[in-house]
Design a protein around this nucleic acid. Sequence first.
DNA 1: ATTAATACCTAAGATTATTATGCATAAGAA
DNA 2: TTCTTATGCATAATAATCTTAGGTATTAAT
Lengths: 122, 122
Amino acid sequence: MHKKIMYIYHMANSKLYKGSLVTIILKLLNESEKMYGYEMTQKVKEITKGELNITEGALYPALHKLEAEGLLDVEVKKVDNRLRKYYKLTEKGNKETVSKLEELKDYIKTMETFMSPKFSLE
Amino acid sequence: MHKKIMYIYHMANSKLYKGSLVTIILKLLNESEKMYGYEMTQKVKEITKGELNITEGALYPALHKLEAEGLLDVEVKKVDNRLRKYYKLTEKGNKETVSKLEELKDYIKTMETFMSPKFSLE
DNA sequence: ATTAATACCTAAGATTATTATGCATAAGAA
DNA sequence: TTCTTATGCATAATAATCTTAGGTATTAAT
């Protein structure tokens, strides 16, 4: 979307917290077997009802990096004369997914102690 | 702690996700009225049982920035011939705290949809 | 015929955290 | 008593990650 002028549009974009993008990508691929980049942006928007917005400027470099690290495999396909790069998890990627999800789960649990009205202490 | 050699020490440090440090600071001050930097690092370690580690290299610049933005007030005190800089929330800081906590809460809720084994869709 | 949607990409900049220092005092261990 | 750990502040270099702002190209919709 090349926005030159953008009066009305309000992005309900609650910014991503650092590190969560990779976890999101891995989780998506863990559920969907194989996906292409643009599809991920739409899927996330859909699932979160617009709450989360994966920007392509962050997504594509992240995908390339995950591929370079051997966590993802790519398969290029041409659909309607437009090319899609389908990504899927490797074995290594599967392991990393488990660990990343665990990490996020722990983090959420930890942060919830702060969210509670009083964190008991003292 | 000037660690020159550090064989054994293992940091259970689950890295901070971007943006959460400020939220942590605001929440601490919201609970404790006034605190100084070093105290915050200890408190967080204590509350999270070592799960979270606020590094001073991140904390102090963050405190300075929050002060510059008018969210925190400072009061310097000398205790045992060592100085402490006590921070407390301003009015503006109180408002920001509410909004930051709300933001984090929303974020956690959103991320939990990803954590669930299947996020229902499709 | 123009705009929106689909589909990829990268570079510049901002933000924020880590790592690695530095200084100084007080308390505790060797 | 000397050395280390703990307390308490600070900053600079680096790394990691995201946003913003472009760019190209094809297809669908208005």
